[in-house]
Structure formats: structure tokens, C-alpha cells
Design a protein around this nucleic acid. Structure first.
Lengths: 194, 194
DNA sequence: TACTGGATAAAACGTTCGTTCTAGCTTGTG
DNA sequence: CACAAGCTAGAACGAACGTTTTATCCAGTA
């Protein structure tokens, strides 16, 4: 959506890094592999990212943050009922995951787990993404009339559960964990209504 | 529990690998680092694991599988009400995570995400672990009188949510995601009663 | 036309990776 | 005491890692 027809070199590097890190994690992705996949040279990578691999990693995480935020916002605004919207979102994730051959799960969780407590810059970008997504859900719930406390707690669990269900679905190569998680989340949200 | 007072070399290697892979993932953990941490030599590692790094990885995942299964079984049998048991389990995980300085999350999720679709042997061990844990919860729910279909679905979501909440808690360095997820899961399970 | 700065290209750095190999050590049985 | 088998020790392999360096290209401006 709204992609520049010919993304510049910097943009190609970030996208390639984001995709590779989604599938192989941060440690499993090499700078040279990123350059090759982005059809850029090593010189270009270090030109745009003097901070080296860590800087590329941070940019890739931020890119993934924005991408998933768009998908989330779209899902949340499609349905009038936020409970239904969450279920729809879970199904959408399940289809994307299946269509990719079970390789495209959450774009940052692999990176998150590998770098937590060891690479502060990436750790921080990951935390920002999680909070960002959480806030999107919380805002939608407040907007639908849920009290502040309930909305915050529910939003936290929605993100956690979607995250975990995507991991489980990927590992088991099955859409079921995501679809049932979506329905359970809808049921949970409904139980807070009124 | 029931640790041999002086674990043998093989056991030390598996434990060290499991711990390091929990914190740094599969790609981020080197064979030499495993050997050093286990107070073993490279020769010993390749003596016990002729399959190399992959074989060590599989053994480490299986070790983590059994360890977490024990924690899960203990939590589930401590409380008469399985809904309460799940909430207690979430709190236990939160405390362990906090006490470790936010580094000891789920022992296999980092490895799972890095290797899925790329290292079949490890992929398989990870899937077995998830199913194993899921079955423990499902059995407990059936035992408590939940119908088969409900028990299976709930067990899937319990594992998914615990997994995701642990990831979120680790990333945000907060116990909250795990504790509220535990309470939400208890509420969800209760909503299926009768 | 000459110059300048951003961007690209490619070779090479030292280090670490997973793995292999050949000794040497221990231990228990004949 | 001898001898195999199980285990440990440590050096060495080629390949890949992240990074640095030097040179070249190519806009846009004066």
C-alpha cells in the first residue's frame, strides 16, 4: 500500500533486513545476506547505516512496527465491534502465515527474544513496537466504551495472545491456534461488556 | 529436583545448551560457548553428540520440554480449580522471569522462531514440546469435567497465551502481562463451566 | 569544464564459526 | 599387569562473520 514504485537503496535494505530477520532472527541474518537480498552492496549498507548491523536491526524493527500497526489499525476499524475485530485480525494473521508456507510469523518476535538483555538499542525498539500495538488496541476499546482499566488490561492480553498464538500456529503449522485464540479473545472482551 | 549431585558431562552439556539457547537463541549460541559453560571440551561435545550443533540443539529442546512440563504439572495439580491453577502458573512464570533479571523466558521460543522451516530436526522437537504442554493442560481440563472440544480449544489458548505473555513481559520488563493474562485465562475458562 | 559530495563497488582485515583430527587420559575387565 | 573402550584434551581446518578501507562512479553546481 502506497509503495513507491522504485524504492531507494536504503528502503530496500530495511525491507530485506526486516524480512530476513522475521524468518531467521537477528543472529541468523548476516549483513552480507541483507545486502545481497536488497540488491545493494556492502558499501551501501554501511553508508546508510554507519552503526553497522545493530543500526540495520533497529531500522528493520521499526519498519516492522509500522507495517504491523497498519494491519492492526485496518482490522480494528473494519468491524464496528472490537471483539469481532480482534477475531478477524487473528484469522487474517492465520491466512498470511499459511500462505507464506508457515514462515512469516510475527516480524519481530524472533529478534526480540535473541536480543533481549544483550542489545539495548534493539531491545528498546522492540519494546516500543509492543507498546505501540498495545495502545492501538487499548484506544479502540476505550473508544468502544470500555473503562480505562479494563481496556488497558484487555489490550495487553490481546497482543500477548496474538503473539503467542502466532508462534504456536507457526510451530504446529496449523491455523487452529490463531483462529481459536481469536474467538476466545472475542469471548473474553464480550465478558467485560456492560 | 532429583538432580544427580554431580551431573555427568553429557548432562552438563545439555543443560548449558538449554540455558544458553533460552537466552540467546540457537543461532546466537556457539558450540564452543556451550562447551565452556558446561566445563567440557569440544571433544566431549562431539563425542556425545556426533550430530554436531543440531543434535545438541535437539537434546536441549527436549530437556527444556521436560523441565517446563514438570513446572506445568506441578502448578496444575496444586490447585483444585484448573482456572485458578493457570493463573497461579502465570504468576510463577512472572516471578521466575523477574528474578532472573528478565532473561529467562520460555526456554524454547527463541530457538523455535529461528529454526522453523529451516532446521527440521529442531522444528520437530519444538512442535513435540508444544503439543506435550498443550496435552497436559487439556488432560487437566477434561479431568475437571470440561467437554473434549472445549478442553482442547482452551488448552491451546492457554499455552499460546502463556507463551505470548511471557514474551511480552520479557520485552517490557514487567510482570503485568503475565499476571493479567493469567487472570484473563482463568476468567475465560470459568466462562466455559457448566 | 572542473569540482564536490553522496552513493556504489570490491577487496581485504581479523575474528569466530562449526567441524575434524590426532593424541592422551582414565577406567574397568581379562 | 595388560589392554581395550570410553572419554577428554587441544590444535587445526576452511568458511563465514562484521567491519574497514580504498577506489570509482555519477549527480548537481559554479
Amino acid at each position: 500500500m502506497a509503495n513507491t514504485p522504485q524504492p531507494g537503496t536504503r528502503e530496500r535494505i530495511v525491507r530485506a533486513a526486516s524480512l530476513l530477520m522475521q524468518r531467521q532472527g537477528y543472529e541468523g541474518t548476516g549483513i552480507k545476506q541483507v545486502a545481497q537480498e536488497a540488491r545493494a552492496t556492502l558499501g551501501s549498507v554501511y553508508h546508510f547505516f554507519p552503526g553497522g548491523k545493530q543500526a540495520v536491526g533497529v531500522a528493520a524493527v521499526r519498519h516492522a512496527d509500522h507495517e504491523f500497526a497498519e494491519l492492526l489499525s485496518a482490522s480494528l476499524s473494519e468491524e464496528a465491534d472490537p471483539a469481532k475485530a480482534v477475531a478477524v485480525c487473528a484469522r487474517t494473521l492465520a491466512h498470511h502465515l499459511r500462505d507464506s508456507g508457515w514462515v512469516d510469523g510475527c516480524p519481530i518476535s524472533a529478534t526480540a527474544l535473541e536480543t533481549t538483555g544483550r542489545v539495548p538499542a534493539i531491545e528498546h525498539a522492540v519494546a516500543q513496537a509492543f507498546q505501540h500495538w498495545r495502545d492501538l488496541v487499548a484506544d479502540r476499546l476505550r473508544e468502544a466504551g470500555f473503562p480505562e482499566g479494563d481496556a488497558d488490561d484487555l489490550a495487553t492480553t490481546v497482543i500477548s495472545t496474538l503473539e503467542g498464538a502466532e508462534l504456536t500456529a507457526q510451530v504446529l503449522k496449523s491455523e487452529t491456534p490463531l483462529t481459536v485464540a481469536g474467538e476466545h479473545l472475542a469471548r473474553l472482551i464480550d465478558s467485560y461488556k456492560r
